[in-house]
Amino acid sequence: MVLFWVALLAISIMIYLLLDGFDLGVGMLFGLTRSEADRDVMQNTIAPVWDGNETWLVVAGVILWGAFPVVYATLLSAFYLPVIIMLLGLILRGVAFEFRHRAARRVRWIWDLSFVGGSLCASFMQGVTVGALVEGLKFTNGLYAGGAFGWLSPFSVLCGVGLCLGYALLGACWLVQKCHSHLRERARRQIPVLAIAVLVFLVAVFIHALIENLPIMHRWLDRPYLFVFPATGAAAAMVLAGSILHRNDRWPFYAVAVIFGSAFGTLALSFWPYMIPFAITIDEAAAPHASLAFMFWGEGIFVFPLMLIYVAVGYRVFRGKVGGMPGSH
Rank of each mutant, 00 (worst) to 15 (best):
S114N: 06
M28C: 06
G27I: 02
S119L: 06
P48Q: 04
A96V: 09
S35A: 11
A122P: 11
L64T: 03
I91Y: 00
F22E: 05
A96P: 10
E54M: 01
W65E: 00
A37C: 00
Q126N: 08
R39H: 06
S123G: 13
L57D: 01
F68E: 03
A73G: 14
F22L: 13
L24T: 07
Q126S: 08
E54S: 01
V62R: 03
L29N: 09
D40V: 12
E54H: 12
E54I: 07
L57C: 04
S123T: 11
I63M: 07
C121W: 14
V26D: 02
F30I: 04
P69F: 03
L90T: 09
W56K: 01
G25Y: 02
C121L: 15
W111N: 09
C121E: 02
E54N: 12
P48H: 00
D40N: 14
V49Y: 11
Y72T: 08
T129E: 00
A60C: 09
W56C: 01
S77D: 11
F30D: 03
V26L: 04
I91A: 09
L113N: 15
V49L: 13
Y72H: 12
V58E: 03
A122N: 10
L32V: 09
A96L: 10
M28Y: 05
T55G: 06
A73T: 13
W109G: 09
T129C: 02
V41D: 07
V49N: 06
V59K: 00
R105V: 14
V116C: 12
L92P: 01
V71W: 06
R93F: 06
L113W: 15
T33V: 15
I46P: 01
L88P: 05
L64K: 01
R34L: 12
I63L: 10
E36H: 15
Q43T: 13
A78S: 10
L32N: 11
P82E: 02
A103C: 06
T74F: 12
V71M: 11
R106N: 14
F22G: 00
A47R: 05
W56E: 01
D38T: 05
P48I: 03
I91D: 04
A96T: 09
F30M: 10
V70K: 15
Y72A: 10
F79K: 05
R100P: 12
H101Q: 14
D51N: 06
V70D: 12
T55Q: 00
